[in-house]
Design a binder for these strands. Structure first.
Lengths: 348, 348
DNA sequence: TTGAAAGCGGTACCAT
DNA sequence: ATGGTACCGCTTTCAA
């Protein structure tokens, strides 16, 4: 069994109360006693049992983080940010991957909420109504999602999209595609809305295409529709989808950015590693994670504060090789390609 | 405050003891009472407080998972496997990213061990001696690392390397490079050792190159040494390093697989998405995670069992476009390239 | 079959 | 400045 407070008390010749004080309210105990207790505790390798402490203080020192899919590199980045900030504040982190399943989200919130001081929901897929039923139970902070009266950390989507569209129109593009992500994703709805607003303002025509899984395969699946849409540039829901598009375009002999410009969202590390490197709107990832933890800690420290603190973090267009001047002639519509096996197309 | 056992007891008109029994030892309570209690509990939304329960049972229902870097897509995959299996068994998972730092690993093990029933250490960077001091404290399972008398889940590296080298020698390669990863990585030591053993047996010459960070940048950094080594094929410590090599080769005008074949390890999803797609040795990832949880649960269920259960999982060579026949003339040594900005090289 | 009481490892309050 | 005691939520004897 582990070392308990009683072991320390006995070894130091004091009561359990004094041990607690020496460790958590040092000012209240005689310096000499304090030092002796602390030394004894250290030498015995004593660490207070957080569960037991939590039982009485109501504080567990834990927080929970839910993400839809660790397979999308966007989320591990957010997780890293959360971890880093949480550990600084001496919090431990429960992580759960919900597999893009809103039912799983709800169940996990319920299960975790009793073991944590607060929860961070990153890009939750559940509906607003479902989300509302969870509020009040446990302190909640949303990441990448906005809901009235719930604290949240979100990126400046509108500005990011403005940067993206300005870049494309400056290159001469006038007819731009947007490949939509999952309908259950608030981020997708925001990006689509921003795309409409911004392209209207810029005098460009926006063609909305499908609604695909937020993965490489989604992009591969949407690529032919993009070609058929006669656009000269396409903005993908996220980088994975953009990479799927790139892959399929290469397989069909469509040159990027010669025939078609491709732009992603997120700036996952991968975006800079591929060929051609992907132009993308960088979202704050680690930073979102850190900010969310900050917001949560703030909330815990002083619960009666504004229940709807909200932080919006800047986005940044990363111009790389996948976008270029609009072709003089509209996008080509090549003959149906030999169907290349996904992800294994040979060299051009 | 959340619903407690007393609330349920009062509402159902029984004692707390009966509530416990009705929920955890149904056989011991009168069917009628049992049903009434369970209905009341359900209608009140009662979930037993796991921390309180753990205090007395000694079981927390939690487990901890440490990984070196979530930024390497290999680890999120393992995490997904752990999560999936853990949730099936009704366990919650503490996750910690140690940032490739062995000191952080040790601290986190200490911090988490009191809150969990067992810990999974994935690719720990600490030394064998450090690792040994941690054993016995809390049930431990190693993933991707072997240590005497500690249960572990590891891939069949030797066989994986054999597949890789056989593939290359069959293509005519006789001089093969191995770009080493971090020295603190057991996996790296194993791969290097396997590479030596296997290539000797296959009559190929092995050239060991550097020791780089297990990341894209590590590969970029090693690429020029690889070219200078006069090999016709190179095996990278992992896929990220392989991608870094590819990127720099492309920038220097070296054709893959025309001039040089490149082979990775891991089979991260990315490997199939790039161009040319990366030939790689697929390691079990989700599967390792699941197996590790299984091993841990087994250990918890019956602690006196063999303390050193060990599972070795098969690996699988994925042949893709980055490997091809050895060139007739040894690898070219192109003139020093214009130094292309990392990760942003334009189209060939 | 059920209830009362003790105690898991801490902390907080009230004495002294 | 320190010790005693009650209690956090739950499980587990022990009696009835």
């Amino acid at each position: 069994m582990a070392v308990t407070i009683k072991d320390v008390a006995r070894a130091a010749g004091v009561s359990a109360s004094t041990v607690t004080r020496a460790l958590t309210m040092p000012a209240l105990v005689h310096p000499e006693t304090r030092d002796r207790v602390r030394r004894t505790a250290a030498s015995l390798g004593y660490h207070p049992n957080r569960a037991a402490r939590g039982l009485i203080t109501g504080r567990t020192g834990n927080l929970g983080l839910l993400v839809p899919d660790l397979g999308n590199p966007f989320f591990p980045s957010v997780v890293k940010g959360v971890q880093a900030r949480a550990h600084e504040a001496d919090y431990a982190v429960f992580l759960a991957d919900t597999d893009e399943d809103s039912a799983a989200e709800i169940g996990l919130v319920r299960k975790l909420s009793q073991q944590v001081d607060g929860l961070l929901l990153c890009s939750p897929r559940m509906t607003d109504d479902e989300l509302r039923t969870l509020v009040g139970d446990t302190p909640l902070v949303l990441v990448n999602r906005r809901l009235a009266r719930v604290p949240s950390v979100i990126p400046e989507f509108l500005d990011g999209m403005r940067q993206a569209v300005s870049h494309l129109t400056a290159l001469g593009h006038r007819r731009i595609g947007y490949v939509a992500g999952p309908r259950s994703s608030w981020a997708n709805r925001e990006r689509a809305r921003s795309a409409r607003t911004v392209s209207a303002a810029a005098g460009a025509e926006l063609v909305e295409i499908g609604s695909v899984a937020p993965q490489f395969e989604g992009g591969v699946a949407a690529a032919d529709q993009v070609l058929a849409a006669g656009v000269t540039a396409v903005i993908a829901y996220n980088d994975l989808v953009a990479l799927g598009l790139l892959n399929r375009f290469t397989a069909r002999g469509v040159s990027v950015p010669g025939d078609l410009s491709v732009l992603g969202f997120d700036d996952i590390p991968l975006a800079a590693m591929v060929h051609p490197a992907l132009t993308t709107v960088a979202l704050p990832k680690e930073q979102s994670g850190r900010a969310a933890v900050d917001l949560l800690l703030q909330l815990l420290a002083d619960p009666d504060r504004s229940p709807a603190a909200r932080r919006e973090l800047p986005t940044q267009l990363m111009v790389r090789a996948s976008t270029g001047p609009a072709p003089v002639h509209p996008a080509p519509k090549p003959a149906p390609a030999e169907s290349a096996p996904l992800g294994s197309a040979g060299p051009p």
